[in-house]
Design a protein around this nucleic acid. Structure first.
Length: 603
DNA sequence: GCCGTCACG
DNA sequence: ACGTACGTGACGGCA
């Protein structure tokens, strides 16, 4: 069969309307077999689960871009668009280039198009090149690398509600520009990735993760709306009662949610002793209120009120609004280009900060439920960051502890307090746990003293003691800071880089903060690399084995799966195996697995 | 739009 | 004398 050029098809389809293909009119080149195509999907909004495609722009070379309207409100759409472009997107011999491909592929999937072929995502390339940057939109990246100023979509749209209302000529010039800009960015960014040694991280981890995340987002998670409603009423009750108590204790009504008004009541009216200050006034945070609660009932009730208010507004009342009408499930967004360390982030809703602690943590996790005839399985890495620290710093004591699989906090306690492990008190273990976390965060005497409520002197002694017994950790930290100073960046085990711009700053605070970032980033970032590898392995295994189990959440060191009952018996072992074997470190990796009808039960 | 606060790893 | 543990996102108040 004769291979027809995509652009031939577009031309034949658009001849009656020259406005559709302005750039095509300019460049009449002889058709040839495509080896790569740059594309961008224009849609009705920013949520790939609920949005629909309005049009698709394509660029095959510089100066040769076009736009195919699909669902414009004015009706000038190309008939049968998808049958024209479908073969191109599904042709594995044609490389696909795009900016934020997760979004585009999710939209295309709903049109029945499954993209095949080698993928290049310029947004992910930009992220790996500079993860400190908070934004990697096409306009931002285009500005940085091509000095190209894109007109903001909001300005193009004006008062129009979405892209489908845009007159076709404006839509065409806007969309074609996006595809062409992406096309031009590709070569520049990939040369830089190569030069920075980031290609294997890019092609082996970040790019394959796109489809994993797209599947997770598409799958969503089930929620018990009836139970949410019940919890909302219960919280409403509690809050009403607390409000009455608080007004009576304060002697007047005020807005409890206003730190400013609360500060006036606590420190001006009741004359309680202010603790720390913020930039704007008195601090009224947990630490301050807990201290005040020792001498007055009001701050104690404020703390209760805050807890319930948070649970109600951020979770119980917010979640139902985010349930997708069609699927009846919650579909979070996993953002792959936000964090400076390589972690994912989650939003709309953030499914990575759902309460877990205390009675209400269980109540709220209890509303996330498995589908009919399925269970939820949670698998989480045990002490992942400390194990990674042990591997990175090669400290003998730390490695030995994990190889023997002893309780790491108890062991640290026995070291810093010079007692045998079986004599460690729960209080000593708590202190040791804080120290172990502190090490990963770039511990300082002041920070530890604040966290433990002890004097900086005592904290300093504990830290010195810890580093005396763990020279490997101390040397690793010194070496990391030294590397950061000389190279300007730090790296994870897989070569992910984080620039540390302030590491040589003359400002002590900035420099010390930079040092803590330098210490933490390789540890947190390697853990992020690790779980990403595990996700890809599991995803491939599920696909190849034609299993119906779905990965539905990632919470930094935990993966959550929705598992049909008939797969529940065998899947845990496979998940555990893939997660524990994702990287071969000098210490074993251990994954705990739980099962249940709700997330609370599975965790 | 920023700030303070607080939920998570 | 200063301000301090690392990384996120969402909420309400306020200018």
């Amino acid at each position: 069969m004769k291979q027809k050029s995509l652009f031939d098809d577009f031309e034949s389809n658009s001849q009656s309307d020259p406005a559709l293909m302005p750039n095509l009119q300019q460049t009449q080149k002889s058709p040839h077999q495509l080896s790569e195509i740059c594309f961008d999907v224009e849609a009705t909004g920013r949520n790939p689960i609920s949005d629909i495609a309005v049009g698709i722009s394509l660029c095959k070379e510089k100066g040769f871009a076009c736009y195919v309207p699909v669902r414009h409100a004015n009706g000038s759409n190309v008939p049968d668009t998808f049958s024209i472009i479908k073969p191109i997107f599904e042709d594995a011999s044609i490389d696909k280039i795009g900016h934020n491909l997760k979004y585009d592929t999710l939209i295309l999937r709903k049109e029945g198009i499954k993209t095949a072929g080698k993928l290049y995502d310029t947004m992910l390339a930009s992220y790996l090149l500079n993860p400190n940057r908070s934004e990697h939109s096409l306009s931002t990246v285009g500005l940085e690398y091509l000095h190209h100023k894109k007109r903001p979509l909001s300005e193009v749209l004006g008062k129009l509600p979405d892209f489908s209302r845009l007159p076709i000529d404006e839509a065409t010039s806007y969309a074609a520009e996006d595809a062409e800009l992406t096309f031009e960015l590709k070569d520049i960014l990939f040369q830089k990735l190569e030069a920075e040694g980031l290609t294997s991280l890019y092609f082996d981890i970040e790019m394959p993760l796109i489809n994993v995340l797209a599947d997770i987002e598409e799958a969503g998670i089930g929620v018990d709306t009836w139970r949410l409603d019940e919890l909302s009423k219960e919280l409403e009750c509690q809050l009403t009662a607390l409000q009455t108590t608080i007004y009576s204790l304060a002697g007047e009504d005020f807005n409890i949610n206003s730190p400013k008004q609360l500060g006036r009541i606590l420190f001006d009216v009741l004359k309680l002793k202010p603790g720390k200050k913020t930039k704007t006034g008195y601090s009224t945070n947990v630490e301050v209120l807990e201290e005040l609660a020792k001498s007055h009932r009001l701050p104690a009730e404020i703390l209760n009120y805050r807890t319930y208010y948070k649970l109600k507004t951020t979770y119980v009342d917010a979640l139902p609004k985010l349930i997708n009408e069609k699927t009846g499930r919650i579909h979070t967004s996993f953002n792959q280009t936000v964090t400076a360390t390589g972690r994912l982030s989650s939003s709309d809703p953030n499914m990575q900060n759902i309460p877990v602690r205390g009675e209400w943590g269980s109540k709220i996790r209890g509303v996330f439920i498995a589908a009919k005839d399925s269970v939820l399985i949670s698998a989480d890495y045990s002490q992942i960051e400390l194990r990674i620290l042990a591997h990175l710093c090669k400290d003998k004591g730390l490695i030995e502890a994990f190889r023997k699989n002893v309780d790491i906090h108890t062991r640290t306690a026995s070291e810093i307090f010079s007692v045998s492990p079986d004599k460690v008190t729960s209080d000593q273990r708590r202190v040791a746990k804080t120290v172990n976390f502190g090490v990963i965060y770039g511990i300082s005497p002041f920070g530890l003293s604040e966290a433990l409520g002890i004097s900086p002197k005592e904290a300093s002694a504990i830290i010195d003691n810890y580093f005396d017994r763990h020279r490997g950790v101390k040397d690793y930290i010194d070496m990391t800071i030294h590397t950061a100073r000389s190279r300007g960046y730090v790296q994870t085990l897989l070569g992910r880089k984080r620039p540390i711009p302030d590491i040589n700053s003359s400002n002590n605070n900035l420099r010390m903060q930079a040092e803590r970032m330098a210490i933490n980033a390789p540890v947190q970032g390697t853990a992020a690399d690790l779980i990403k590898i595990a996700m890809i392995r599991i995803w491939k295994r599920l696909k190849e084995s034609h299993l119906k189990t779905k990965m539905i959440l990632q919470i930094h060191d935990e993966l959550l799966f929705e598992v049909p009952d008939n797969e529940a018996g065998t899947i845990s072992g496979l998940i555990k195996e893939d997660m524990e074997g994702a990287l071969s470190l000098s210490v074993p990796l251990i994954v705990g697995v739980g099962k249940g009808h709700t997330w609370a039960e599975a965790h």
